[in-house]
Amino acid sequence: MNAANDDPADDIVDVLSDYLDRGVEPPRELIEQSPENHLALAALLRVREAARSLIDVDEGGLSTGDEGWIDSILTNLHREVKAGRAIPLTHPSPRANLTLTEGAVRGLVRAAGDSVDGVLVGRCVLDGDVTVAGSPVVVRVEASVFWGEPIPAAAERLRVAIAGALIQHTELAIEAVDVTITDVHLRRTDDEGQQS
């Protein structure tokens, strides 16, 4: 990596992963340094928790070449923890200028999605001009499900959870939440190894 061209947000997932791989809690100052760092840590912890109970059925992963599904999720996290576009928020005072970052919204989508049992969010994209209040926005989410989960029901639970979180916490004009299930994984049992 060429440090001269690097955005610090490009590294945070790797830095936090290094701490977690060593079994060390990342320094509090690092997490409190920015909302993006906090989002990255929360997402990494959710992915690691889910990974403990999954076995990859498709050794090819999430249609990303030779990467496994975890690598694909981590690649998306690198992109998603960046602040991105500023989303305007209303305020009664004309002097106030409040915004919400696109990264915070993607973190909200991931958290809502990962709270749905049997589902793990892989990618989230906000389509539409989020910088203009009232513009229609389509949220596109890719996810994987556990083997045995009825896919239409899991996708609907995910869609409802994400839509509810966005309505509750944002002022976005959500036109649709599109969910695509891209992978199926088996739950790991106690007598199975790291991967079948």
Rank of each mutant, 00 (worst) to 15 (best):
P150M: 07
D21H: 08
W147F: 15
L45P: 00
W147R: 13
A43P: 01
L98S: 01
I87N: 02
V121S: 01
V130S: 11
L39F: 10
S53A: 08
V121E: 04
Q33R: 11
A40W: 00
I70W: 02
K82I: 11
T64D: 15
K82V: 10
R95W: 00
A96H: 06
S93V: 00
V132Q: 10
V119M: 03
A86V: 01
E49G: 13
H38V: 02
E25L: 14
S63M: 10
T75L: 13
D56Y: 06
Q33V: 01
R85V: 03
R123P: 00
T90K: 10
D66L: 14
S63Y: 09
W69P: 08
R28S: 14
R48V: 04
V24I: 15
G84H: 06
N97I: 04
R140M: 07
G107H: 01
A154V: 05
W147I: 07
D117F: 05
L98G: 00
A104E: 10
G65S: 02
L20T: 09
D56A: 15
L54W: 12
I55P: 00
H91T: 09
T90D: 12
S63N: 14
F146C: 09
P94M: 09
D66K: 15
P94Q: 01
N37G: 03
I55N: 11
D66A: 12
A86S: 07
D114T: 03
V141P: 08
H38R: 14
T101H: 06
T90G: 09
A154P: 10
G60K: 13
I70M: 06
T101A: 14
G65Y: 10
W69R: 13
T75I: 01
V57W: 04
V105N: 03
K82D: 09
R22W: 06
D71L: 07
K82Q: 12
G118N: 08
E32Q: 12
R52A: 11
V137K: 09
